[in-house]
Amino acid sequence: MLEVKNLKKTFKKTVAVEDVDLYIEEGESVGLLGPNGAGKSTTISMISTLLPPTKGTIKYKGKDVLKNPDELRPILGVVPQDIAIYGELSAYANMKFFGKIYGLSGSQLEKKIQEILELVGLSDRQKDVVDTYSGGMKRRINIAVALMHNPEFLIMDEPTVGIDPQSRNYILNMVKRLNGEKGITILYTSHYMEEVEKLCDRVYIMDHGRIIASGTKEELKNILSNEETIVIEVAERKQAFTDLLVSQKGINQVAEEENNYQLIVSKGDQLLGEIFEQARQTNVKIKSIHIQTPTLEDVFLHLTGRKLRD
């Protein structure tokens, strides 16, 4: 349905996006995963016809989107990463306005507003001014207005940033329903691996403006088929221990976080003995140690040597 080839965007001298190829089939739910500054929003802005690319093509159903933005726009819904709502108006007034500019009116408009308010769980607060909403509610109304015109293709740019786990779960379930029940094609951007793992069939992993890996979740995890992840919980991290781990043969990546070490090791190597020995040498107290099946987070770590949320 959508095909992006060789996309590139430079801002003055900074290259924000380069060599991006991706495609999305009808009804799919596709994730675009990457840390902050990876170029996700820039890519999305080009796909949604806002930002002219420096290079590359974007085709929707075989037609060039850059030349005919009006082919894509009517069926496109965009949930921007910042809350793009008139804060001084109520949720209802916002939805009414955005419904109207898409040509809805009368009882049809009213019905649509109530249907979507129900979906995002804001029915009882619809007359309140949006500025008085909590972060989670603002995120929900931000999604709601993008649904007013029944889009077939929904692009969501980090729609759960900075909200409590409860609201986040609500939104994730909602997105799943939009894709599953209503058949809306979804391009979902995030730097939370769990979200993409939960919602998406296929994933593109982006870093420094480039797609560094892509495929179904299983395919991506197969990148790690010869490797496994060891998570060590310690009482206190020590540089000497880290250094020993890094220089240990068979340990391919080492990431540190609070009281954890996350190691990506070659499968089959018996490394636990060495790790315990090194901990003893450096006086590090190991509280727990376990071996994990890989996650997309591990894939990112494997590919870049960094964690998604640095």
């Binding site: 726009r73 496109l76 793009a84 955005f98 500019i101 898409y102």
Partner: peptide
């Protein structure tokens, strides 16, 4: 700055 302008750009207006 907020992005509501972009929403208007997507619309048929």
């Amino acid at each position: 700055r907020k992005g509501t302008w972009n929403r208007l750009i997507y619309s048929p207006v």
